[in-house]
């Protein structure tokens, strides 16, 4: 790890101010990607702005058909939240599937969404649950937010403060783990909303998280696994590595999507 200056602001305004003044800054949330990268000397920001002491980035609240989660809420807190479990059990279950207990008690929703790792789970939840990413500057629809692997609509110095999810009538997330890293090799989040079904896929795409309009259309007509039986998933934009080539990933997208629909439908 290279030497760096450590800052610990207590408000979003202070954090944004620090980012504006200092050179070469990085925000630190749970640190599960940033810190290992720094330890391996693959990243060496001059200034690290720790968001961990900012109270306004915490909290979970339900308001009508949305549930809003503070950016610094840890995965374990989301997984165990009574509000989340009641409103969107699939989201709580997804959080429970991230990493291991150590990870879930450090990693945050805001960090995961801002990082947009192509195999992270939250981006799929955001797309499927028609989320709004709220920053210290604006509100961004999830459909506009994720712009390719490790790339988002966030501007330099912009801080995610909350993520707001639409409560679906039925939803489920199924994940096929990379055997080694346990990240999603393929993760499919299916959610049935009043205005249609959303199907979002993480882990598989070479451009990061994406939706499957053909499946969404079929499921909006008939929310049952059979509805998507014949739908082939194109391999051309699939990731390919030693764990899974594009054909296998594309196949798994279909399998995981069907299993997610079954699980969501079973929830009634």
């Amino acid at each position: 790890m290279y030497a760096f200056e450590y800052h610990r602001p207590t408000s979003v305004k202070e954090a944004a101010g620090l980012a504006g003044q200092a050179e070469d800054t990085k925000f630190l949330a749970g640190g599960h990607t940033l810190l290992p990268t720094m330890k391996l000397r693959l990243a060496g920001p001059a200034n690290l702005i720790d968001l961990g002491q900012i109270a306004e980035l915490r909290g979970i609240e339900r308001s009508g058909d949305t549930i809003t989660i503070g950016a610094m809420m840890k995965h374990a807190e989301v997984a165990n939240s009574a509000e989340v479990k009641q409103a969107i059990p699939a989201l709580a279950e997804m959080a429970e599937l991230i990493g291991d207990p150590h990870v879930r008690n450090r990693g945050t929703i805001g960090g995961s969404v801002a990082n947009n790792d192509p195999s992270a789970d939250y981006p799929a939840a955001c797309l499927a649950l028609n989320a709004t990413i709220i920053t210290n500057q604006r509100k961004i629809a999830a459909d506009d937010f994720f712009q390719g692997i490790f790339t988002t609509a966030l501007q330099e110095g912009e801080i995610i403060t909350q993520v707001s999810f639409k409560v679906p009538s039925q939803a489920a997330y199924t994940k096929f783990r990379n055997p080694a890293s346990r990240y999603a090799l393929v993760g499919v989040f299916v959610a049935k909303h009043a205005d249609g079904v959303r199907v979002a896929v993480t882990g598989a795409g070479s451009n990061g998280v994406f939706r499957l309009p053909e499946m969404e259309k079929a499921l909006s007509g008939n929310f049952a696994a059979e509805a998507i039986d014949g739908i082939a998933v194109a391999t051309d934009e699939m990731n390919s590595d030693i764990h899974a080539d594009a054909a296998y990933r594309a196949h798994l997208v279909g399998v995981m999507a069907r299993r997610a629909v079954q699980a969501a439908a079973a929830r009634g």
Binding site: N178, P179, A180, S181, Y183, I242, H243
Partner: peptide
């Protein structure tokens, strides 16, 4: 689960627990 994989240039692809299972 386990298998050390080198690419043709001799780089170890499975050089961490992210890829070596």
């Amino acid at each position: 689960l386990e298998g050390a994989v080198y690419d043709q240039s001799g780089q170890l692809i499975t050089a961490s627990f992210n890829d070596y299972c």
